[in-house]
Design a protein around this nucleic acid. Structure first.
Length: 951
DNA sequence: GAGCACTGC
């Protein structure tokens, strides 16, 4: 097609006029509204170049911002070809680790991160005459930030800078207001019409899962148009894709179709197969497409895909789209400090984008698996990334550019104050920002109220500049690494511990797509163990071993497949690793690499700046043993100190994290034996059945390291320092560091029990440590009682013996199975044998405000510990009368019950009418045990639809 | 017998 015929040329005159006009009025800003296929990405840069609008003077450069690398490369290539020039001359591109530009380059296509980095290096963007923001509707975080900064620069010092923002969606009012005054130009696209159908009636996923529904409708539609071409089905994730493929293959009417999955984790060869067989990613697997090509009749395809096919990959020849309307959406929950990845309904914009995939080559049809009425209730747009993801990296970047007041920054859409506060707090913890003043209105911090000896009045409010946390020298050092601040911090720590090489590799291995596949077969798991050896200390180190093995094998496809390694992803790690190393080396005055024997026999350099060869240090090569690994693990701790976790029990994978969070250690983690660890990745996942928080990338740590690395946070917690400043720091960490560490120490056999007891007893007696959950803490609780007995004879408490201990655990953990035992020796009287009423009362203050009765613990098989995946937390309007009556009698209050049933504990909390949990005393507990059958039957009568068997 | 979308420096 002749590019000059593209619809976008209808806008040429207007665009030029708008740019000239704007230049006179304090800065040219144009918003171009044009759908995909209008030719805007290639032609607008050319129009600017043709009319000399790259800028005044000689060096005026047109920078075109793109959200994806592949598109960046291809657009540059096409525009260069259209201009009849070699790539890298007039037209070039720049993406991470790859640059094709020269001094003559006037049009430079770049990815978003590249421009943000450039702004950081040169706050005036000298040499840049125009910036074109392409695909801006995708609203990536870096796109938002670069536009905001570009506006700032234009308004302050560069009114000659031309800004063109291009968007494919029509809903641009907010953007228009943001850019005002600005001109809006609209152009038609050149795609084929797509007929959109909805379901006539809503279908509940309970009666028919989406994959069944999709397969059924697919069969029907295909029968209606037997000559049609390929079909594209959108599903939220791999699980749903596999179910859909099964359902499709079970349909008789679809027997002649080739059904193919398409998602990001698939090897390139398989992706190519789904997309159309053309080599797009350098896949070496020619066999599949080769035989396909030679076939006389090509089978029609049904491609079942995730969102990759919505924007990143284009599939030729599709005229029918079936859209589930669902997607897995990543968010960051700043309140809990965890990532979530849950199935959600897509937005209208996203549904339109998906539908458009049916009209690339010919008129098409899109069936939406929801009703027209349901459609009206969908969100018009996806939430932009600023409102969805962790802002730490961007906040650090802004602080480095001198923007201290983040709330006052000219966000296109402002993130929540919570999200900003969380990012600042993480950066403070990492040492990248100075601590906020005590009386600064930090917002979201828990340490309000102790304005202490500060002479300033209360609620001064008005933000004077010096109350904002500022970037530190360490923060600037961290910013040199193109990484999340956590990993940058790890690398800085590695510099101090002479293990940069290893940590740089660890960082590189965790960027981008994960190269070690999850949920692999038994054979692969065994092969991994055989080839990689045993690793128990860190998931990072397992990655390192796997990658080194793959590298030694030259990333051989067969070898990688055997070990469940994504060969292509693994191959991309090398250059990244080198980049981090290079940056680390460039940082002068640190001996960042120790002389570490490498698998290839070369020795890395030691010594400082002048590059003296490291032979002399060869004698000092440290043994590759625990000492070396512990340094690596301390680096991880430095980057993730707010994600320290401990196992709650040995029967399940449940863990407790600092700041009161919980989760399940990832099944594939190597740290199954560690008492205390650091978590590199917290993700709440779900979609089918239950939602759970998965803790991945774990690293075992040792408790003394906490004191070593965080002396001021930890000192107070062990009672050494107790001044106001330390108190505040601890308040910020919500005192969890200490509790977790102590608990972990208690359950670790390596620490002499007497030492643990000494610590614990002191904490307990000082009132600084309280028990939280009876179900999980029975063991520790018994130990505690025993330590109390041992260390504080004045309490007159006797030790809990082995037999009684077993009995207690049985009764408290396994509930009903011990009904006989309860009758014979009820719990509380047993306790009474050890503790007098006074002692019990004294102990009461160590007991939780909120005592949970539970049958917990994963252990009791078949018995009351049986699971029911379906139960959810639910409030019972009324509890069992027999229990209510007793509570009324004992406490004189009306009660409410919360029945919680997760996978493991089924628990009933007793709540007073003011919603505060009631402390359950021994009387009530005893009553509960004795009357359990009656209570249960009352409950099942009252709530017959609930499943009670787990009780 | 559990549990995972897509980009980018």
């Amino acid at each position: 097609m002749d590019p000059l015929n593209l619809p976008i040329y209808e806008l040429e005159k207007e665009l030029l006029a708008a740019l000239r006009e704007g230049a006179g009025a304090g800065g040219a800003r144009v918003l171009v509204q044009a759908p995909t296929g209008s030719g805007k990405s290639t032609q607008i840069p050319k129009i600017l170049l043709k009319h000399g609008l790259g800028g005044t003077g000689t060096a005026g450069e047109i920078v075109v911002l793109q959200p994806r690398r592949l598109a960046t490369r291809m657009l540059a290539r096409r525009v260069a070809a259209e201009l009849g020039r070699a790539l890298g001359e007039t037209v070039g591109y720049q993406i991470r680790l790859e640059s094709r530009v020269s001094a003559q380059t006037r049009i430079r296509f770049v990815t978003e991160g590249v421009l943000l980095r450039q702004m950081l290096a040169d706050g005036q963007l000298s040499g840049v005459g125009a910036i074109v923001f392409d695909e801006f509707h995708e609203r990536h975080l870096y796109g938002d930030i670069t536009l905001a900064r570009a506006l700032q620069i234009q308004r302050s010092t560069r009114p000659d800078l031309r800004l063109i923002v291009m968007s494919a969606t029509l809903d641009t009012e907010a953007l228009e207001r943001y850019l005002a005054p600005c001109r809006v130009l609209t152009s038609a696209g050149r795609t084929f019409p797509v007929k959109i159908d909805y379901l006539p009636r809503a279908v509940s996923p309970d009666t028919e899962p989406v994959w069944e529904l999709a397969a059924r409708e697919c069969e029907r539609l295909v029968a209606e148009s037997p000559d049609g071409s390929d079909v594209l089905v959108f599903m939220p994730g791999v699980y749903e894709i596999n179910r859909t493929l099964q359902a499709l293959q079970a349909r008789r009417g679809l027997r002649d179709f080739e059904c193919l999955p398409l998602h990001g984790e698939l090897p390139a060869a398989q992706q190519d197969r789904a997309v159309g067989g053309t080599a797009s990613g350098g896949g070496a697997d020619d066999t599949a497409s080769g035989s396909q090509r030679s076939g006389v009749v090509r089978r029609r395809k049904i491609i079942v895909s995730t969102n990759v096919a919505e924007t990143s990959l284009t599939i030729e020849g599709v005229t029918l789209v079936i859209d589930s309307g669902l997607a897995r959406v990543a968010r960051y929950d700043p309140r809990r400090g965890i990532n979530t990845l849950l199935v959600e309904k897509i937005s209208i914009a996203s549904a339109d984008q998906r539908a458009g995939r049916a009209g690339r080559t010919a008129p098409g049809t899109c069936l939406r698996l929801w009703t027209a009425r349901e459609h009206e209730r969908l969100n018009p747009q996806e939430l932009p990334e600023v409102k969805r993801i962790d802002l730490a990296e961007v906040v650090l970047t802004l602080k480095a550019s001198g923007i201290d007041d983040l709330v006052g920054f000219n966000w296109i859409e402002a993130p929540s104050p919570d999200a900003l506060a969380r990012a600042e707090r993480l950066l403070e913890d990492l040492g990248a920002l100075s601590r906020a003043r005590a009386n600064a209105s930090a917002g979201g911090g828990g340490d309000r109220g102790d304005s202490g000896g500060n002479p300033r009045g209360t609620e001064e409010g008005a933000a004077s500049a010096n109350t904002f946390p500022q970037i530190t020298a360490l923060g600037r050092q961290m910013l040199r690494f193109p990484l999340h601040p956590r990993y940058a911090r790890m690398l800085i720590e590695a510099g101090k511990r002479s293990c940069v090489r290893e940590v740089a590799l660890m960082a590189a291995l965790t960027q981008g797509r994960s190269f070690l596949l999850r949920g692999v077969s038994k054979e692969i798991a065994q092969a991994r163990e055989r080839v990689l050896g045993e690793e128990h200390e860190s998931d990072f180190l397992l990655l390192v071993r796997a990658w080194e093995a793959a590298q030694r094998a030259g990333f051989d496809l067969g070898f990688c497949r055997e070990l469940g390694i994504h060969a292509q992803a693994a191959r991309q790690v090398g250059p990244l690793y080198e980049q981090f190393l290079k940056i680390a080396r460039a940082a002068a005055n640190t001996a960042w690499e120790r002389d570490y024997p490498r698998s290839d026999g070369r020795h890395s350099r030691t010594g400082s700046a002048d590059g003296v060869s490291g032979d002399a240090a060869a004698a000092a090569v440290p043994a590759e043993t625990a000492a070396g690994d512990s340094d690596l693990r301390k680096c991880v701790l430095a980057g993730f100190s707010d994600q320290v976790a401990r196992r709650l029990d040995s029967g399940t994978l449940r863990c407790e994290l600092v700041h009161g969070r919980r989760g399940l250690l990832a099944r594939e983690s190597v740290c199954q034996r560690a008492a205390l660890m650091v978590i590199g990745e917290i993700t709440e996942v779900g979609g089918r059945g239950e939602v759970s928080t998965v803790l991945g990338l774990a690293t075992a740590i040792e408790e003394p390291w906490l004191a070593e690395l965080f002396p001021e946070d930890y000192a107070e917690t062990t009672g050494v320092v107790y001044d106001e400043a330390a108190k505040r720091v601890v308040a910020r960490r919500e005192r969890r560091f200490r509790d977790l560490a102590l608990e972990a120490r208690m359950s670790s056999e390596e620490v002499p029990p007497s030492a643990a007891a000494a610590l614990l007893a002191r904490e307990v007696l000082a009132g600084r440590l309280k028990l939280k959950h009876w179900d999980e803490a029975v063991e520790q609780w018994i130990v505690r009682v025993n330590r109390l007995a041992e260390w504080f004879p004045e309490l007159g408490v006797s030790q809990i013996g082995e037999a009684d201990r077993a009995l207690l655990i049985e009764q408290l953990c396994y509930g009903e199975t011990s009904a006989r035992a309860v009758r014979e020796k009820p719990v509380m009287p047993v306790l009474r044998e050890w503790l007098s009423a006074e002692q019990l009362a004294a102990l009461d203050q160590y007991l939780p405000e909120r005592l949970v009765m539970a049958n917990g613990g994963g252990g009791g098989k078949g018995g009351p510990g049986g699971r029911s995946g379906r139960a959810r937390l639910r409030y019972l309007p009324e509890g069992p009368p027999i229990l209510s009556a007793r509570i009324q009698e004992l406490y004189g209050v009306e009660s409410r019950f919360t029945l919680g049933a997760g996978r493991v504990p089924v628990r009933i909390e007793v709540l007073a009418p003011n919603q505060r949990p009631i402390q359950i005393t021994d009387d009530l507990a005893l009553f509960w045990r004795e009357q359990y059958p009656k209570i249960r039957s009352e409950l099942s009568r009252r709530y017959p639809r609930h499943e009670w068997r787990e009780l």
